[in-house]
Computed example of a mutant assay.
Amino acid sequence: MPDLSDIMYWLRVLYLVCQASILIPVVAGLIWRRRLPRNLRSLVYCCLMWLVLMSFGEYASWAWGNNNGVYQLVDILEPWFIGAAYYHTLRRPWRRYFPLIGMVFTALALFDYFVLSGLWQAITQTLIFSDKYATLLRYILMIGLLLLYFEQCLSELHPRSLWQDAMFVVSVGFLLFYTSTLMLFLTKHLILGPERRLVFAGLGVVNLGLHVLLARAFWLGRHPPPAVVGAGLPL
């Protein structure tokens, strides 16, 4: 029987390898960036943000034993990049409210982090930090955005397979990612001890899937899709 410490070590390695796979869409996005439409370019910048900040978060955890504040910054920036991608994808008049929604979310998240949840104390005193409401609000916004996109897909007649549409591929990846992490967020108090490492390794595999789908989307986005029959028609 393998030793428990060996299992934990290899689960950690699996998690780090899956996290490092963000390099796949980053390289693909940078290679084809000039040929991508605006929505996909926003996702390239999002991948770059993930790479820089999450790498720094891993370093901060190793060097100082404290990466509080880093992942919270990721959680604030992420909806802006992804929201920008869907702002240039959705064809609904109320998309003009996206910047306002983003500002409200940012203000509420900062209020939660620093007033309700004590992020500053967690940073200065190297405490375990967990926000109260900001993460759940982010999941609601992101999943809601994806559902709006899928509703738009259903309302239009597509001349080709949706799996050849870059934003559809991306949206499937995001939906798998956000639903998986939402389940982890809602049940994290039930997961204790070594099982946490197993769960995070599984989440790493979900990240790997998302990164592969992002890279495929950038590959598909090199050439503009044919015009969509019925696009832009009001419901």
Rank of each mutant, 00 (worst) to 15 (best):
V212E: 01
L208N: 02
P226M: 08
L208S: 04
L182W: 01
R12P: 00
L146A: 08
V229L: 12
C153H: 00
Y15T: 15
N66G: 08
R138D: 09
R91S: 12
L147T: 05
D165Y: 09
E156V: 13
T106S: 12
H88K: 07
L233S: 03
S117T: 05
M1Q: 05
F114C: 13
R38I: 07
R91L: 13
R96V: 15
R38E: 03
Q152T: 04
I101T: 10
A84K: 00
L233D: 06
L73G: 08
M1K: 11
E195D: 14
Q125E: 14
M49H: 08
L203Y: 11
I143A: 04
L157K: 11
V212R: 00
D131S: 12
A227W: 00
P93Q: 07
S21P: 02
Y149L: 02
A63V: 03
T106D: 07
G209K: 01
L16P: 00
E156P: 04
P2S: 13
L235K: 06
V206G: 06
S130D: 09
V17G: 05
I101F: 12
L145H: 01
L210W: 02
S117W: 06
L235S: 13
L127M: 13
H88F: 15
Q121F: 00
S42T: 01
L198H: 01
V104L: 14
V199C: 09
Q152P: 08
A201G: 12
W10F: 15
G221D: 02
Y87T: 01
A215V: 11
A60D: 06
R91A: 12
L233F: 04
A122S: 12
V205F: 04
F56G: 15
A63Y: 04
D6W: 10
L148S: 07
L137E: 00
V26L: 12
P224R: 08
F81M: 10
P194I: 02
M183Q: 05
R91Q: 15
L16V: 14
G230N: 09
L175F: 11
A201W: 00
W120A: 15
S155T: 10
G57H: 07
R197C: 09
Q164N: 10
G65C: 10
I128S: 13
E195Q: 14
W62K: 12
L53I: 15
I140G: 11
F56Q: 08
Y59G: 08
Y87V: 04
L198Y: 10
E78R: 09
W80Y: 14
N67I: 09
C153E: 09
P37D: 14
R33H: 13
L141W: 08
W80P: 09
V170H: 04
N67F: 08
M167F: 05
G57C: 06
D165E: 14
L4G: 01
F129H: 07
L127I: 05
S55T: 15
I82L: 11
I76N: 05
V205H: 02
S5V: 11
L14V: 12
Q152H: 07
V74Q: 03
Q72N: 13
